[in-house]
C-alpha cells in the first residue's frame, strides 16, 4: 500500500464493546451476526473488520442506519475510543502506536472533529470556543484570537465573536463547531453527522458551506451521515455500513447502479436515479432494428441533463467516452430510468 498517496488508511479495524473484547476478534464468534454475538458472549461488535483508504483532499462519506457503527468508527480513527484491533494510518503515521503525548499533539494540530450535537463549551465566548484547541496547545492569546477571527470570517460568523453559544441559533452554533475544527488548519477533518440536528433549510445551507470550504481549502474529510442525498452531494466516495461492517464502498454512481445487496439498494431506493446516474450506465449496443441518429453525448452526462437532448433526437444517441462510442441510448431508456423508478 502506498502511504504517500492516501491521507487515511484503515486496515482491519475492530471495535468490540463488552466484557472481553480481545477474545472476540479473530475467533469463530467474530463472524456471528451482531445480535447473536451479544446473546452468546455479551459483547457488541460496533465496528467489525473495516478497511478503507482516503486520498488527500477527498471527501469520504460513511453512511448507515442508526446503530450501524458510524460514530464508533469515526471515534476509533482519532482514538477517542480505543479500537480493539486493527491499524489506522494518518499521513503515514500509525496512530494506534503513538504515545499519549503525540496523540494529543496530533489532535491539536493535524486533525479535528465536528460533532452532531456541536459540543460547544457554553461557558466560553464564540471566539474562545474556536481558539480552544490553540489555547490548550499553548498558543498566545493574541495569536489564537487572530486566527480565530480569520476562521470566524471564513464561516460567516462576523460580529458574533463575543457572543455565547446559547445566544446563537443551531445553525450558527454548528458554524462555530466548523470554525473550531478549521482553526487549527488540520490535515483531516472528521464530521460526525454534523447537520442532522438542524432543520432542512439550514442543513442545505450548511452543506453548501462545507462544499465551498472544501473547494477553498481542499481538506481531506471523513463525513458521517445517514442522509443519502447529503452523501451524494458531498461525497467523492461513499462507504455503507451495516452492523459494524462496510457492505459496499464506491462512488455514488457505483452504489446506485450496482447495489451489493438489498440493504444498499434499500438505501438508494428513494433517490431519483436520473439525478445520479450518468448515461454511461444505461448505454447499450445498438439493436439490429435501430439506426444511429448520428448525435452524440458525453458518457459523464447525468441522465437528467441528457433527457432533453435524447428525447429531441428521435432515435438512438451515441454515448461517447474518450472519443470512442461505448453504446447508444434512446428516449425509451431515459424514460425507464426517470419514470420507471427502481429497475435499472
Amino acid at each position: 500500500m502506498s502511504e504517500v498517496s492516501s491521507a487515511i488508511s484503515v486496515n482491519n479495524l475492530w471495535q468490540v464493546f463488552g466484557p472481553n473484547p480481545e477474545k472476540i476478534v479473530g475467533s469463530a464468534d467474530a463472524s456471528l451476526p451482531r445480535a447473536e454475538l451479544r446473546e452468546k458472549t455479551g459483547n457488541t461488535a460496533a465496528v467489525r473488520d473495516v478497511s478503507f483508504d482516503v486520498a488527500p483532499g477527498e471527501v469520504f462519506v460513511v453512511m448507515g442506519l442508526s446503530g450501524s457503527g458510524k460514530s464508533t468508527l469515526v471515534r476509533c480513527l482519532t482514538r477517542l475510543i480505543e479500537p480493539t484491533s486493527g491499524s489506522v494510518v494518518l499521513n503515514g503515521e500509525d496512530i494506534m502506536k503513538v504515545s499519549d503525548a503525540r496523540l494529543r499533539e496530533l489532535r491539536r494540530t493535524k486533525f479535528s472533529m465536528v460533532f452532531q450535537n456541536f459540543g460547544l463549551l457554553p461557558h466560553r465566548k464564540v471566539i474562545d470556543n474556536i481558539a480552544f484547541a490553540l489555547e490548550v496547545n499553548g498558543v498566545s492569546k493574541e495569536k489564537r484570537h487572530a486566527r480565530a477571527n480569520e476562521v470566524i470570517e471564513l464561516v460567516g460568523l462576523q460580529g458574533f465573536a463575543y457572543a455565547y453559544p446559547e445566544q446563537l441559533s443551531g445553525g450558527m452554533q454548528q458554524r462555530v463547531g466548523l470554525a473550531r475544527a478549521l482553526a487549527v488548519n488540520p490535515d483531516v477533518m472528521f464530521l460526525d453527522e454534523p447537520f442532522s440536528a438542524l432543520d432542512p433549510l439550514i442543513r442545505r445551507d450548511m452543506q453548501t458551506e462545507v462544499i465551498r470550504l472544501h473547494e477553498e481549502l481542499g481538506k481531506t474529510m471523513v463525513f458521517i451521515t445517514h442522509d443519502l442525498s447529503e452523501a451524494l452531494k458531498l461525497g467523492d466516495r461513499i462507504a455503507i455500513m451495516r452492523d459494524g461492517a462496510v457492505v459496499q464502498m464506491g462512488t455514488a454512481e457505483e452504489l446506485i447502479a450496482n447495489p451489493a445487496d438489498a440493504y444498499v439498494e434499500d438505501f438508494t431506493r428513494d433517490i431519483p436515479k436520473s439525478h445520479v446516474l450518468t448515461v454511461r450506465t444505461i448505454a447499450r449496443p445498438l439493436a439490429d432494428t435501430e439506426t444511429a441518429t448520428g448525435r452524440t453525448i458525453p458518457a459523464e452526462t447525468i441522465i437528467r441533463d441528457a433527457t432533453a437532448a435524447v428525447l429531441d433526437a428521435n432515435g438512438p444517441v451515441a454515448v461517447v467516452a474518450n472519443g470512442n462510442v461505448i453504446g447508444y441510448i434512446k428516449s425509451r431508456d431515459i424514460l425507464q430510468v426517470v419514470g420507471g423508478g427502481t429497475e435499472a
Binding site: L80, F115, Q116, L121, F132, A133, V136
Partner: peptide, 16 residues
Amino acid sequence: TSPVEASISMGTTKRQ
C-alpha cells in the same frame, strides 16, 4: 458528554 468529547478531540490533557 459532547463538550467533553469535543475537548478531548482537540487534544486537552486531563488537567486542562
